[in-house]
């Protein structure tokens, strides 16, 4: 099963964007991640009419992810579009990635951790795949597949 999670938007000023989405439009902050590894802050906001449809869990859906790079150089490298990825939750991330590879697609970030993968679409968009909890046990061939190419946030 494939479940829509969120669309990611790259922001310059998190407070200004949160003011817009939450104070002006009335959306609600449902989760905040400080990612030390990827050096970013990710804030997930949801529309009030979607609050009943999904529980507060690790990945709230449907939502908008407001994504702030900590490093200006990293932000500049991703300035080509205001949007980053579209995110979907899958029941079996290995099966989804295998199907994509069989269709000739490159998995830009293979699911080495059994939890997350990125793949570029034919339109140059990035799709994020998130394994429904629990994460898979890390396994080959994914474990030895390196990151490939560039993906847009």
């Amino acid at each position: 099963m494939l479940e829509y999670l969120h669309t990611m938007i790259k922001v310059d000023d998190l407070d200004r964007s949160l003011d817009f989405y939450c104070n002006t439009l009335g959306m609600i902050e449902v989760k905040r991640l400080e990612d030390l590894e990827e050096r970013c802050t990710a804030v997930f906001v949801a529309a009030p009419g979607d609050m009943a449809s999904a529980p507060f869990d690790a990945r709230f859906a449907p939502a908008i992810e407001l994504y702030k790079y900590w490093d200006e150089a990293e932000r500049d490298a991703h300035r080509s579009s205001a949007y980053g990825h579209l995110s979907f939750r899958v029941d079996d991330i290995y099966a989804a990635c295998t199907a994509l590879r069989d269709a000739g697609r490159t998995i830009n970030r293979p699911p080495r951790d059994g939890f997350k993968a990125y793949v570029e679409t034919v339109d140059g968009l990035t799709v994020e795949l998130i394994q429904r909890r629990p994460a898979k046990t890390p396994a080959e061939p994914w474990l030895s597949l390196p990151d490939t190419g560039h993906w847009n946030g």
């Binding site: 099963m1 494939l2 979907f88 989804a96 199907a99 994509l100 679409t121």
Partner: peptide, 11 residues
């Protein structure tokens, strides 16, 4: 072409 991509993902 774009639809064919998303078909692979069970859309």
């Amino acid at each position: 072409k774009t639809r064919a991509f998303w078909d692979v993902l069970d859309m």
